[in-house]
Nucleic acid binder design. Structure first.
Lengths: 208, 208, 208, 208
DNA sequence: TATGAATGAGGCTTCATTCAT
DNA sequence: TATGAATGAAGCCTCATTCAT
């Protein structure tokens, strides 16, 4: 009986935390982070100011957890989509399919793109990955994925980390303004050239 | 006589504006933008608060002009270095030489790297390029450079804008953490792979 | 059986109250009263916030009871020490011996000195003396002591209350900074002069 | 002309600072220090919140300066009164006359007595004495006074600092409750006994 | 032009207290 | 009795901006 009581309370707490998460995301993406105050967040969530501090240290805390959370959601979805396909015959195909999924998700949800791109930086990602409350939520973990892919691949690359890095930066940088402003070209035009470039970069890195 | 008087006043005005520019840059790069107040800036510059508003609209205004200014300084220096070399036989060589110069400048001045990277975004660049007070300062102009290079080249590319974009994003993204944190590898290790990738991307874009 | 059950519960209650007492004292003397919150107290005591309000009205309540308690402990100890001596031949000797014991106790426990001195005031003492939960704890009672001493003495004084008052204030005031800061002189140097002054004051008050 | 302008502005500033001083004193003595907020102070003074911070660091700052200020005012007045008398034939007479003046001042202004007694401590006095904005206000200086008296006296004392200390503590301690609560006796009854005790203490300290 | 005193909105955070469980 | 989530008033302080001089 007392167990059920506890779980009920825990559920309520979870609900309140999620409420704060969702309303914060809403406000950060519409008003912008620095123009969103704690007052805005709590009045939107319909809770008292003090309640915010029961769940988060400050505005930066909730932002960082939000970024990590959303970032992982996107990667997890992309991973699952790649797994479900049966036309992936090489690592190149896999990387491109993964990229394609991420681009598509961002194209459909430009608010998310703006939020993540504006706020992403390595410090945040790192501390977030360490935060168990996020990584434990689902079984998925971006670090595990990377390891898994590397081991499965039968082709060897000179420096896989550098290669992935170059690809990620190229993709994220160009897509940001392509999706949001159609500059230098709309995303549909950009994609084939991007994929060609990914293959070209991977080719330079192969060890024969 | 009155002309000289006017020019003297103009000089003084210029002096104060420059002072505010320099001190702002100092503070933005040490304390960070959002933690730097107008009070900080003026007390460091030794002028009154009201004076700030005589020259700039607000804190964002001075930051944007600062970024554009510093960004152009770097490009101009890189351009001049490339011009002075006599071992540039192709557009690829030119792009790589230009990139190399920029990377070297940032390696020597990581504060600048942090400032520009953290604040750069297309909106700022665009409004800044339009601002005559910056572009007119020296004869150099990044837009003109681009045109010039494109016309000179005897090889044609499918989509030069896209190509340059992809290269720029790949370079800037990877160099940031490579220079500042040696991640994923130190900049000296990164460079050859980056240059290989640049050549590879350009190759995919060539029209034969 | 039910009696033992009740006494067990009573013991538990007593235990919790004592726990709150002890942890409060610890925190008040380390962090200071105003910087110690109820949250601090209960989290240190390992009980829930609501529990605090089961035993005390508020932070002031627990502080006042603490002061009275600790003050009485000190007086009781001093009284017992004086009783145990056989070299006390006059009221002057008794007063000085009592004073000496209190000073020694404070010298060994400066935290207590700070706490009591900083918080002592007549309102608190008075309400605390009235509080039965404190005075009943042991048989000792400072008011009874005073009466007892006065009756036993064969010398008469003009105004014993005033005399004791002057002595107490002189002693407590000077000892505070002498013990804590060695100002104006260390306590060992101060003592003989203090005792001379006590004797001198008492002499002016004697009725011959 | 510009000089007069500056002095006019300085006058206005002085006026505002004094306004804050006065209103703070009023509130601290009626509501109590901890229950007086900055908001209370500024709304009573009729200035904006920010203005407070132009003149004082925080609530503690204004309180400490207030104590030092008021304390010095009292001592200065007592000193002048002693100087004006022609029946002072010894150091004992001087100390007693000074004490008498201070007691009389506090008897007439019990609010001041409460404020100073509750807040006085050596740290505050010390930092206040160092603060030039207070000590320079008038020529008077408590440290100078002490030196002056010591040099003039033709009788020598074993340890003048300790002696003064004991006297001060005895006087201040007993007077506080005597003036405010008539306990243990009204101040008029206390005085003669206090003065006897002062003479007795000084006697024990004389070097013959 | 230049100054800097004054403003006051608005942000962040703490914390005593309550009350449903 | 005991709990601790929730409250929201209340405090402190900063800072961009204005305007009289």
């Amino acid at each position: 009986m007392s167990e059920r009581l506890i779980s009920k309370i825990e559920e309520k707490k979870k609900h309140k935390k999620d409420l704060l998460f969702n309303k914060s995301f809403e406000l950060f993406t519409t008003k912008g982070f620095s123009k969103t105050s704690i007052s805005d967040i709590v009045s939107n969530a319909g809770v008292a100011k003090g309640t915010f501090y029961l769940y988060f240290k400050d505005k930066y805390d909730i932002r960082n957890k939000l970024i990590a959370q959303k970032g992982q959601d996107i990667c997890e979805k992309a991973y699952n989509e790649v797994q479900a396909r049966d036309d992936i015959n090489s690592l190149e195909d896999g990387v491109i399919a993964f990229t394609d999924s991420v681009i598509n998700q961002f194209s459909k949800d430009t608010i998310m793109l703006k939020f993540i791109a504006k706020n992403l930086n390595y410090g945040i990602i790192h501390t977030a990955i360490v935060d168990e409350s996020i990584t434990n939520k689902s079984g998925f973990n971006i670090a595990k994925l990377y390891q898994e892919v590397k081991e499965k691949s039968d082709v060897k690359f000179k420096s896989p980390e550098v290669m992935m890095y170059m690809i990620i930066e190229m993709v994220s940088g160009t897509c940001y303004s392509s999706i949001l402003e159609n500059e230098p070209v709309p995303i549909d035009e950009l994609k084939p050239q991007l994929f060609d470039s990914i293959r070209a970069i991977m080719e330079t890195q192969k060890i024969h």
